[in-house]
Amino acid sequence: MTSKTLRRRLHHADVDGKRHEHLEEASGLDDLNEPLLGNPDIWPFESALAEIWNDEQRLQQLHWALLFSQLIAQWARWLANIVLGSGSLIGRLLTSATKNGPKSRLLAPTRTPLQEVRLKNLQQRLQVPFDGSRVEHQDALKQLWRLAYPDRELPPLKSELWKEMGWQGADPSTDFRGGGFISLENLIFFAEQYPELFHRLLHKQDGSRAEWEYPFAVAGINVSFVLAQMLDLQSAKPTSMAGIRFVQLLEEDEMAFDNLFCVTFQMMDAQWLAKRASYMEFNDVMKSTRTQLERELALEDVSSVKDLPAYNLLAK
């Protein structure tokens, strides 16, 4: 059985093989708060994002508690230095007790004007939903097909052929929902900047693959969505630790989000192969990918996406 046939099985049958050929009739939803992740009887992504969202809420609660503690610590240092005098015994004790706390870097540094502009531009991109009636969005979808299959004829915007790229049905526009137009831009950027790696992932050429593989295009939408959540880009001023570090990366690279998308997609696939995962395990793979990325963003010597250890995956 060819890899193409295996990928098509994801669209033609559910886990127990009881239903066939019915997914292509699924309609798009208007809610843009989460991506279209498919029939919950078939796709593991919806529960994955629910768990990620719950984890995000717990992390945010912890973060704000730590942030409040740091504000108290900073106030204590100010009191020691200004009121009591840093040269006094009490002043030295208070300064020593609060200076090197384990969470002393939680407060976001002042952003530069360049970071402000680039963050605002990125957040504006994130607010644009995919609209299948807009000519420029249709053209972008066609561009992705040409990049993916340069030697094949461009199909109509509604065609069974789109399933071969990893869309759920014959109409890719129904798969974007919460991923928005930026997720399509991310896929195009990946195909243009790293064409060889893009095609290796698209055609699942690396490693020993499961019979039930993750769908390439829909997985890309999920990577974009999870990145935006992890980096706290819905907030006017990101306060998550990963978000604060990411804003710093914008100083060096205006396309940091797009480049990080490429790194994350490749990380996810590497995790997929290492775990010998099947598509029902996409949940665990995406969560472990996120954890690894958060750790790498926390490294002190990371000032650009290229400094991330996982960036080496793009050079293979």
Rank of each mutant, 00 (worst) to 15 (best):
L6A: 09
L10Q: 11
D14P: 06
D14R: 06
D16K: 11
L23D: 06
E24Y: 01
L29I: 03
L32I: 00
N33W: 04
E34K: 13
E46Y: 06
R58T: 09
H63S: 08
W64F: 05
L67N: 13
F68H: 13
Q70A: 03
L71Q: 14
I72Y: 10
Q74H: 13
G87H: 05
N100L: 02
S104C: 05
A108S: 14
R111Q: 07
Q115N: 10
R118Q: 12
K120F: 01
L122Y: 04
L126C: 09
L126Q: 09
V128S: 05
F130Y: 14
D131S: 07
H137W: 06
L141A: 05
W145E: 09
A148R: 08
E153M: 04
P155I: 00
S159D: 06
S159C: 00
L161E: 14
L161I: 04
K163F: 00
M165E: 01
W167I: 00
D171H: 08
D171M: 01
D175A: 01
D175I: 00
D175V: 01
R177A: 15
G178C: 10
G178F: 11
G179E: 08
G179H: 08
G180W: 03
G180E: 03
L187D: 09
L187K: 11
F189C: 00
F190I: 09
E192V: 04
Q193V: 04
Y194F: 15
F198C: 04
G207T: 06
S208R: 12
E211P: 03
P215V: 01
F216Y: 15
A219D: 04
G220L: 03
I221V: 13
A228V: 02
Q229G: 14
L233P: 10
Q234G: 10
A236E: 08
P238W: 01
S240Y: 05
A242L: 09
I244W: 01
R245H: 09
E252T: 08
D258C: 08
L260G: 05
F261Q: 09
V263N: 09
A270P: 02
Y279E: 04
E281R: 15
D284N: 11
V285M: 05
V285N: 08
Q292K: 15
L299K: 12
N312T: 14
N312V: 07
